[in-house]
Design a protein around this nucleic acid. Structure first.
Lengths: 246, 246
DNA sequence: CGATTGATTGAGTGTGCTCAAGACAGGTGG
DNA sequence: CCACCTGTCTTGAGCACACTCAATCAATCG
């Protein structure tokens, strides 16, 4: 199966798709919509009419501002579906914007109806992937409330590296972190000043190497050990759902 | 439709169920399994073979301990399905325990296959409810990283009240909070001592009333305003999924 | 009854924040 | 080519919110 669909290739990493399933997914990427960096897709209170496949570029979900800063709640990478979380409510609680320039492939909510009606196994796969996200969010909640600032920063680097790895976007220990230090602070819940102090400290200790916008992790084992990092997105267990003949 | 099923009555609050859907859900509660308070259902690393309908009592998801305390990641109330988040992975990342005594109704994972195969609209409803949970978790992430301790505590009280309201478990402004102050700290990410100081402060300011295990909110408007609280679980928008004839 | 668990209060501390100033790079217009 | 932006990184000094440690009190239970 070799369709030009980042969604299909992402899903195929998790399970073998039937012909029908693959064409259904590939079909979602029919329409292409190039977006400039920084463009806001959805504001708080608005309705997200369509869903999107993020074909290229990075997208961000942000909270409203509080004490002068907003929180980055979710980083979307190429191959992911945007808008699933907004399915349950018509007014958005959080805003959505492109972080880099990229391409969105919009498809109407009604396609989800078709999905549930005709592709039960794909529906279950989406649910299972959603459950992985919830696990990741639980880890983030744990991290924010129980970890030191340094541990939070280390975990951010490790989990971003891990996600880029799964998405085939990181070669080895070096990967792209297209964020200013202030934005990193918006992810891990720290001030720009303190992010800088911690990054400087990690660099001086020889644990990371910074060549913007790239970061290389030099002390992988030590860092994994320090925060007890566990990869979440590496694979999904869908063994409880019997695979169907094509 | 009046079956003795807390799951059905919960779902009926969101959408009108067909006969087939209601019986499917009610069927999940066939088996009853009474559990004592404090009993651990699932340990980190173990596999959750069955899913459960929580028929009565409260259940908790906890993280591993860090710096002497663990984080409460999720509070399950009667009528909710336990184990959906664990569907995507065989080894649990977080532990699960009964907080009060209660009754679990176990059903095997394979019933989820039947659900997806024969009840597409119910599957979509579960997905939509899962999306509400993700919204709530995003709010919690925002809360933990950007709010003051007092605001976090206030938001915890408001959101618990709101959830109990939706579940018909809170009459008015007074509702049950069956947690020690240390456990409240485990939810909002504070130490027991500081939870005590804040609760005392709120009480002295005449904004809440404490009669363990109940709390009454006296300054509802002020508190809602203080943290910008927005109810998440009041309703679900499933208008994009056409209702089927029974 | 002690024993245990939870609430309460005091005193002192530290992690991460605030405020502020300066360095540096890239981009723009004159 | 320079002057002048603006955004980002960097570093210093001081501060405060929430934590730690500790002791006392109240309530429940075996």
């Amino acid at each position: 199966m070799h369709l030009d669909s980042c969604l299909v290739s992402k899903m195929e990493k998790y399970v073998a798709l039937t012909r029908s399933e693959a064409t259904f997914l590939a079909d979602l990427e029919k329409e292409h919509w190039p977006i400039p960096a920084g463009k806001t897709i959805l504001r708080v209170g608005e309705t997200l009419r369509d869903l999107y496949v993020l074909k290229s570029g990075w997208a961000l979900v942000r909270s409203r501002v509080s004490r002068g800063r907003s929180q980055i709640l979710r980083i979307y990478l190429p191959g992911e579906i945007i808008g699933l979380v907004e399915l349950g409510r018509s007014e958005a609680l959080h805003s959505l914007q492109m972080h880099t320039k990229g391409v969105l492939c919009p498809f109407p909510r009604e396609r989800m109806v078709d999905l549930y009606n005709s592709e039960p196994r794909l529906s279950a796969l989406l649910t299972a992937l959603g459950s992985l996200e919830q696990m990741a969010m639980r880890e983030q909640i744990f991290s924010l409330s129980r970890r030191s600032a340094e541990d939070r920063l280390v975990e951010f680097l490790l989990s971003l590296q891990d996600r880029l790895h799964v998405a085939n976007l990181a070669a080895t220990s070096r990967f792209m972190v297209p964020f200013s230090q202030a934005q990193i602070g918006d992810v891990v819940g720290l001030t720009p000043v303190y992010v800088n102090r911690l990054l400087t400290k990690l660099r001086q200790e020889g644990r990371i190497e910074i060549e913007r916008p790239y970061i290389r992790i030099l002390d992988q084992d030590g860092m994994v050990n320090q925060v007890g990092f566990r990869s979440i997105y590496q694979r999904v267990d869908l063994d409880w759902f019997p695979s169907q003949a094509a």
